[in-house]
Design a protein around this nucleic acid. Structure first.
Lengths: 122, 122
DNA sequence: GTTGACCCTGACATCAATGGTATAGTTTAC
DNA sequence: GTAAACTATACCATTGATGTCAGGGTCAAC
């Protein structure tokens, strides 16, 4: 199939498919006219890429293990777990930071509301 | 004082001070030679800007109420509370999304570890 | 009169994935 | 044989605050 069909069947834009290729996540053969040609497997492959992207991984991180995952089961790809653990730590730090900001913000709001009430009751 | 001294006294880079000016957060007089000149008040003003930035607000959001906050108490600036509430909602959404990703990731990790144990005990 | 420490503006780079646009060649359907 | 639909590459834009560099003034001390 050509890129337009792959885009339709995966729900991923043509633009993104070409980007994945540039990032080494997806390969294609070419017709004589230069058009990209994909096998049926490409559909599953793009779905797999999307799965990892939704898991919060960057294309670069995915590139580190995608090839292995496509030919073996994920559990047999030793590259996967470190990436997962790394991302989890990163996520924990991000969430902690956002929660700290959130707490500060709530405190400010409560403070402002208290002052407003005070002004009203005076 | 000139920009270098303001930078030292606030811990904010010269680059950022000029950026704040561009965003309308900070103003300066100029010497005849074009050098920026700041009053003592600028130190506190920059600290105030930093305070809001650490609270997760963008320079654009800060610009919406900074002028008022600098001359009145925050509680008397009606522009502040909506920005806070808005940011809080946004933060809640962000955190919820990250936590969903985190949960998925933990599940994947647990799954992989279970498979690894299985393989060992076989 | 020169060195070094300041200051100025303007512009590009960063990070990441995606959208959009321009220009041009190819295929398909009528 | 032509119009519509598809594909190709190449490039710019987005987001936001900051770093960094280029090229050039200014000023003080020696």
């Amino acid at each position: 199939m050509r890129i337009g069909e792959l885009a339709k069947r995966t729900g991923v834009s043509i633009r993104s498919l070409r980007y994945y290729e540039l990032q080494g996540l997806l390969s294609s053969d070419r017709e004589e006219n230069g058009y990209r040609v994909y096998s049926e497997l490409a559909v599953e492959q793009v779905n797999t890429i999307q799965f990892y992207i939704r898991l919060g991984l960057s294309t670069e991180e995915i590139a580190g293990f995608l090839h292995c995952v496509l030919i073996k089961k994920e559990a047999f790809c030793e590259q996967v777990l470190p990436v997962y653990r790394n991302k989890l730590e990163q996520l924990d730090r991000q969430i902690a930071q956002l929660e700290m900001i959130r707490a500060n913000l709530k405190e400010r709001i409560a403070h402002l509301q208290a002052e407003a009430t005070e002004a009203t009751t005076q």
